[in-house]
Nucleic acid binder design. Structure first.
Length: 614
DNA sequence: GTAGGGTTAG
């Protein structure tokens, strides 16, 4: 999973995903940006790959085969090269992400080879490889064996498994270990160790704690660097605290720390997410003025922002500028553009982009396929979506829960429940564990197609298997059973939901109240209104309008108008469907003295109480 | 002279 992972420990504050805010729709962004990009000719492009290192046998970067040949040649040399040469030779293999190969070379070749004395660097590489393979526990075993063999660990030796814990979503344990190292004075933490903890805190949403650690660093001997500032700036942006992020960037200037391309990318992304185009382009300008060349991610961030503005054509312009500047578009660039076209329903264009990507030698990933499948499903073109779905194995790709969820939703919308059921079984056969979104789609799909009892059975099966239940799932069922006039089941589900301690939202209450009103159970509906108040869930305009319509339906005009008064007092308006009913009461029964009293009261308090729904 | 921390898309 990417940057933000699900964290179950209560130590961690829950993370919200930033919703895209279209705050300043229609502002100056696109052409402004395009011209700015076009004027970039005076800045340098990203540096190309560094020259091959001058080893005994040269290693061609990014080429596993050559790296392995070099390594084996070194083992044949007599006298044997020093250990640092072997460590250096492991670098490209590790950097290419072949952690298993690096680890195997260390454990099965170097460690077994007589005449080679490993050093602490070799062990650190091995521990890092274990951690990158999500085997932090094995990294800790290596740490133990390192102690036994008499090696002296350094800050890196501890930072690596600390990072391993963070990568395995065990940030609280990582923080504990860090604290222990400080209190026992086992090792003096250095800048990277602090940075690793800051990263752990940021990715688990503990930005405020990360900021505190930043202050401590400022006061201590390990001053934060660009990376530490960048991680916090990025986290502030993701926490919707973009102003604070911009402020922190200014503080960097005051402290004489220069922002890098990643710092700018995070800030630009944060600003774009809130529609602050002018500031985002200002940031780009500032970046260029400081001689920092935008990289593929900078372009991708702008591409994504344009896509969300519905400007897929402009993304093509950004892509052109990228190519002109020698920045190679990557799979993310093309996926973003494909998504832009899919959002507009232009599937032919999306497929054209897909083919261009393949022609340029890039390998499509599952996200790209999901974008296209989602595009076809939105247009209800299940055959085309299924064709792409069946193509996945040929591309060496595996569908994920998102792929299945999209397909299932489409099948249900087309009322092809049998096919959906078959696909759901297939999902389980291939070993993909359905997530809460998939179950939500299944429950909703079954209910919308009239299979409410099958949905309920599925729900009970989930309960028996201790699968995650959420309010949305309950709400789907409550709504379905209310609409089917099976109020006993709806009530039972509602009570079950309350007893589970799940947070009841106003929508769930409204569904229940609507169901009761439809059946004329107004007294009980009003009781729910009281329950809402007691539980601290605030009624909204929908709640009031629903009950008011219920009372009017039963010709209980007095009660209806009392509720209108209460609703207006709370700042809600009569909606378009309630409005004619109220007008009817006022015109036909307006002379009733009791009603007149009520009418006078609320009309006097807020003469604008009756507004049409937007 | 070799090792460890940061940014993007459905």
């Amino acid at each position: 999973m990417s940057r933000r992972r699900k964290v179950s420990d209560s130590f961690i504050i829950g993370r919200r995903r930033i919703a895209y805010h279209n705050c300043q729709k229609g502002t100056i962004f696109p052409s402004f940006l395009f011209h700015l990009f076009c004027s970039l000719s005076n800045t340098t492009t990203s540096p190309t790959s560094p020259p091959p290192p001058l080893l005994a046998v040269a290693i061609i970067p990014n080429h596993l085969q050559s790296a392995l040949i070099s390594f084996n040649c070194m083992l044949q040399m007599r006298p044997l090269p020093p250990i640092y040469q072997f460590n250096k030779a492991l670098g490209p293999i590790t950097k290419m992400g072949h952690y298993d190969i690096s680890l195997s070379l260390i454990l099965n070749k170097l460690l077994q080879f007589h005449g080679i004395q490993l050093n602490i660097y070799t062990f650190n590489i091995a521990i890092n490889c274990c951690c990158r393979l999500n085997q932090a526990h094995f990294g800790f075993s290596l740490l133990g064996s390192l102690f036994k063999r008499g090696y002296t660990p350094d800050a890196t030796t501890f930072t690596t498994p600390i990072n391993g814990l963070i990568l395995e979503d065990k940030t609280p344990e990582a923080v504990e270990l860090f604290k222990k190292l400080i209190t026992t004075r086992e090792i003096e933490p250095d800048l990277v160790m602090y940075g690793t903890i800051v990263n752990g805190l940021c990715r688990t949403g503990n930005t405020i704690r990360a900021v505190s650690l930043l202050s401590k660093m400022e006061d201590g001997s390990h001053k934060p660097d660009t990376v530490v500032y960048t991680m916090i700036i990025d986290s502030l942006c993701k926490d919707k605290m973009v102003d604070d992020a911009v402020k922190l960037r200014t503080e960097m200037d005051e402290k004489g720390i220069f922002p890098g391309v990643v710092t700018y990318n995070s800030l630009i992304h944060g600003l774009c997410n809130f529609g602050r185009w002018e500031e985002a382009t200002g940031m780009l300008r500032e970046m260029l003025d400081s001689g920092i060349a935008p990289n593929v991610r900078t372009f991708n961030v702008f591409g994504d922002a344009l896509t969300k503005e519905g400007k897929a054509k402009e993304v093509e312009g950004v892509l052109e500028v990228m190519i002109q500047r020698g920045v190679d578009p990557d799979v993310v660039t093309y996926n973003t553009l494909m998504d832009g076209y899919c959002l507009q329903g232009h599937m032919d264009e999306a497929i054209r982009v897909f083919n261009t990507m393949v022609d340029r030698g890039l390998h499509p990933n599952i996200s790209g396929y999901n974008i296209l499948i989602n595009g076809y499903c939105k247009k209800m073109k299940i055959d085309e979506a299924m064709h792409l779905f069946r193509e996945l194995p040929q591309r060496g790709l595996k569908p994920n829960s998102g792929t299945f969820s999209t397909m299932l939703q489409c099948l249900f919308r087309l009322s092809r429940c049998g096919a959906a059921q078959k696909l759901f079984n297939e999902m389980q056969v291939v070993g993909i564990i359905p997530d809460s979104q998939t179950y939500g789609i299944l429950l909703d799909g079954l209910c919308k197609n009239g299979h409410i009892f099958e949905a309920l059975s599925l729900f009970h099966m989930m309960e028996r298997n201790s699968l995650d239940h959420n309010v949305v799932m309950y709400s789907i069922l409550i709504d379905a059973f209310c609409k089917d006039k099976k109020l006993d089941t709806a009530r039972a589900l509602f009570n079950n939901l309350s007893s589970k301690g799940l947070h009841l939202d106003v929508k769930t209450y409204n569904m229940m109240i609507h169901g009761l009103c439809e059946e004329g159970l107004l007294h009980e509906a009003k009781e729910f209104l009281v329950k809402m108040k007691q539980s601290g869930c605030l009624a909204d305009g929908v709640t009031y309008n629903t009950i008011i319509q219920g009372f009017i339906g039963q010709h209980k005009c007095y009660e209806a108008l009392i509720l209108v008064e209460e609703m207006v007092q709370r700042g809600f308006s009569i909606d378009a469907s309630t409005f004619p009913l109220i007008v009817d009461i006022l015109s036909t029964k307006g002379q009733d003295p009791a009603l007149q009293e009520v009418i006078k009261k609320f009309m006097h308090k807020d003469s604008h109480g009756m507004q049409e729904k937007e």
